[in-house]
Amino acid sequence: MQLDDALHAAFRREATGLEGIDVAVYEKYDRDPCEPIIGLGPREAPIGFFGRDPGEQEVRWGEPFIGAGGQKVREGLYRAIHGAALPDFEASREVGRLAFWANTVPYKPLGNKAWPMAVKRRFQPLMAAVLVDHWQGRELITLGREAFLWFGINQSRETRQALDAFWKRDDRFETHHDTPLQLENGHAATFRLYPLPHPSPLNQTWYRRFPDLLAARLESLDAARRLG
């Protein structure tokens, strides 16, 4: 699935002159820092993954979720579909083409620090349009707190409060949350979110548990049948 010309141009326009993009990394790999990194996958992909923002390897390959943390996700996806360990890097790229992938902001920030709320608000209408109008699926595995709570940006107070309350639940990584997402033009959809912790090695609290949590999510979503 490709972004339509108008939406693609809007992403590039918002990125032009944006402070905080890690321009040096884009230059290192001869990549355009205004080009959004969105690994859209098939328009009809029934299951998607939603994270925070790209890292260096994502810039290098022009694909989201391809670095160390993303490889943990792709490894779990491959195992769920094929019942075997991920054999190599190319297999991780290939299995990724079966699902939908996106981030709160599709540009690498300096120092891999989370984008400030002002930047997330700036890109929220565009990312929301990708989710509501361009992707046909409605079930998303969100990775980390920021990706999950992104669904409250520019939404109603009731929606934000419901997301906050759900994130505080002890069983948040074992159940799901349905939330509406409304665009400025009135278009809207309800998404079923399956939150997981961020798969970063720096997240010591959850890193070792992540593969089992992801496997349980993929099993509950019947990913082997629906994506295989």
Rank of each mutant, 00 (worst) to 15 (best):
R121G: 00
D133N: 14
P33R: 13
A45C: 10
P106W: 04
G17N: 11
R52H: 11
N103T: 12
L110V: 04
Y29F: 15
L149S: 05
G55Y: 01
E90R: 07
L18D: 00
R97H: 03
Q71G: 05
I81F: 10
P33S: 14
Q136V: 02
I81D: 12
R121E: 02
V105W: 04
D32R: 15
P106G: 10
E90M: 09
M127R: 03
F50C: 05
V132F: 13
E58Q: 07
V23L: 14
I141V: 08
A147P: 03
G20W: 09
D30G: 02
P116T: 04
L143E: 04
Y26G: 11
G51K: 05
P116C: 01
P46G: 08
G39P: 07
Q57Y: 03
P116I: 00
I38Q: 12
F89N: 04
P87G: 14
G111F: 07
Y26C: 02
D22V: 01
D88N: 11
A99C: 15
P106V: 06
A147L: 03
V119I: 06
G76A: 04
V23N: 04
P46M: 08
F89R: 13
R31K: 14
G62Q: 01
C34F: 00
E139A: 08
Y26S: 08
L140I: 00
R145V: 11
Q124A: 08
W61K: 13
L40S: 10
K108L: 08
L77Q: 14
D53T: 03
G76H: 04
E27R: 13
A99Y: 02
V25Y: 07
E139L: 04
S92Y: 11
R97A: 05
R79K: 14
P36N: 08
E35I: 04
G144A: 11
G111E: 08
G70R: 05
M127P: 00
V25N: 09
C34D: 14
H82M: 10
P33I: 06
G83S: 02
R93P: 10
H134P: 05
A91Q: 08
A85G: 09
R43H: 07
L77N: 05
L110I: 01
E44F: 05
R52T: 07
G69N: 09
H134G: 06
F100E: 00
L77W: 09
I37Y: 09
V23D: 06
G62D: 06
K120S: 01
